[in-house]
Amino acid sequence: MLLDPQLRARLERLALANRTRLRGVWGGRHRSTRLGESLDFADYREYNPGDDYRRIDYNLWARLGVVLIRLFEAEDEMPLQIVVDTSRSMDFGDKFPTAQRLAAMVTYLALISGERVRLATVPGPGSTGLIGPWARHIGSWPKLETWLENLEPSGGTDLVAASRIVASTVSRGPIVLISDLMQDGWQQAVDLFGTARGGLVLHVLSPAELDPDLTGDLTLRDIETRTEVPVSMSGDAIDRYRDRMRGFVLDAARRCRRVGLEYVQATADEAALDRALRAMVASGVVR
């Protein structure tokens, strides 16, 4: 079970929010980029033959002598796509379990908000990755939870390819990316995600990555790429690493916000979900 009952009860008091207009296939409760049938008045335009005469504003016709019809806002659903990074680099410490739980938390939030949601994984080089079914009702939660639980980190990933695949789907809802961004070209992927749909990046990093406790002469091997780097650990080397890591996190945050993505850095530990939820509330993604 990815979400305990207490957390689910807490999530049921919250809902996903969207601060921009979006374009959905089905009607929903979010403001759409098109006009439609809601109760919210949007504008006037001149009457054209064939228009519904029930929308003619007779008061304006009597006062101005011009026949105008009232236009109303449309309300669409928010088709949400949650992309989980399943690369080997996530298989370190509690990073991947934390990513699974974060994905579950956002999925559950979307379902109880009545949004259409789809889960996907980042494809690796030469593969398409896994793309789950769309779901819209809370009754789909057990199926999606099982789908998430069955994920395993393996192989490499291609964030850029993932962004292109997701952007090419018909539904133009926001995207939630759950990843450690630990690969070359992460900047391009973030740019593509942002310009395509907007959304949220949950940046998962382990405490050991943020503050490594390493001593002596070591050969560091990249879990994902198998690249080896000989390093003599010293106070200065650790300090330089921390500076680079801090710069990486700050750079990721700046880049996400520049392209319209919300950014939350989640440290992979027991309190990760709580802190991430608080950060999402603070940034307006959840209310």
Binding site: M90, K95, P212, D217, R221, D222, I223, E224, Y241
Partner: peptide, 10 residues
């Protein structure tokens, strides 16, 4: 000593 890390980028 060999030690695996998520990434050697940093």
């Amino acid at each position: 000593q060999r030690l695996e890390v998520p990434s050697v980028l940093m």
